[in-house]
Amino acid sequence: MLQSFDDGIWIAEGPIAVVAGFRYPTRMAVIRLSDGTLFIWSPVGLSNELRAAVDGLGPVRHIVAPNSLHHLFIGDWQAAYPGAKLYAPPGLRKRRQDLVFDGDLDDDPAPIWSGEIDQVVVRGNAITAEVVFFHRTSRTAIFTDLIQHFEPGWFTGWRALVARLDLMTAPEPTVPRKFRGAFTNRAAARAALRWILAWPVEKVLMAHAAPVETGGHAFIARSFAWLLT
């Protein structure tokens, strides 16, 4: 359920999420900070097994929704861990007025994790603003929906055709066409991408693609070459 990804960072696969008939696998990340507390990125469905595994790593103190689309389970986690702080990306407070957020995510990391996790908001996209994180110890960049990949056969029927046209089943993970077309402010997006490319990235985690464990910096540059040119 909970798998070690690198020093101080774990991942867990969650249940399938269905959006407009499209099936999406879900993945979360857990980062243990130097004070022993846990940073939960894009939490998936909270089962008893997953909760026991997470509790075995340390106390949950920070729950992060990385964009306005990845919020399905944050309420369950907030209820399970009332001592944790819940952080909202741009646009999510309005969408989830049923929740009480303790902070907002922007380009400046919260002081508690600023020495260990960097972040930048990729703005200018009409679908969602996504907060991309960088775990310094493992040199891991963490994307949510901006980079995706699904194996051939994951989608069937007309959805398989849509996925192919959208580059969701391209030879390697890349930015889907729907997200490319939704960048109404490419200057803002380029500025964020230059920030990301300044990080010494070796690995890349994504919510909807297999992790990239080597050559992460070059991989990100390839994925966004269409934006940089």
Rank of each mutant, 00 (worst) to 15 (best):
D7E: 15
D7A: 15
W10H: 09
G14E: 02
A17K: 15
Y24M: 11
Y24V: 10
V30N: 04
V30D: 03
V30Q: 03
I31G: 02
I31R: 11
L33D: 01
L38S: 08
F39C: 03
W41M: 04
P43H: 04
N48Y: 08
N48E: 15
L50F: 10
R51V: 07
A52R: 15
A53S: 14
D55L: 07
G56N: 01
V60E: 05
V60I: 08
V60Q: 03
R61A: 10
R61Y: 04
H62T: 09
V64P: 10
S68P: 07
H70K: 03
H71F: 10
I74D: 05
D76V: 10
Q78P: 05
Q78T: 14
A79V: 12
Y81W: 08
A84R: 05
Y87V: 11
P90S: 00
P90L: 00
L92M: 11
K94T: 13
R95A: 15
L99Y: 09
V100W: 00
F101W: 08
G103N: 04
D107P: 08
P109F: 00
A110P: 11
A110I: 08
P111Q: 00
E116N: 04
R123A: 15
A126S: 14
I127Q: 03
V132T: 06
F133Y: 11
F133S: 00
T137S: 14
F143P: 12
T144I: 04
F150Y: 15
E151A: 10
P152A: 00
G153V: 13
W154F: 12
T156M: 06
T156H: 10
W158M: 15
W158L: 15
L165V: 12
D166C: 09
D166Y: 10
M168Q: 15
A170P: 14
P171A: 00
T174I: 12
V175T: 15
V175N: 09
V175A: 12
V175E: 03
R180G: 02
G181Q: 13
A188M: 06
A189R: 07
A191Y: 06
A192R: 02
A192M: 01
A192N: 02
A198W: 07
P200W: 02
V201N: 04
E202W: 03
L205A: 01
V212A: 00
E213L: 13
I220E: 00
L227I: 04
L228C: 06
L228I: 15
T229S: 14
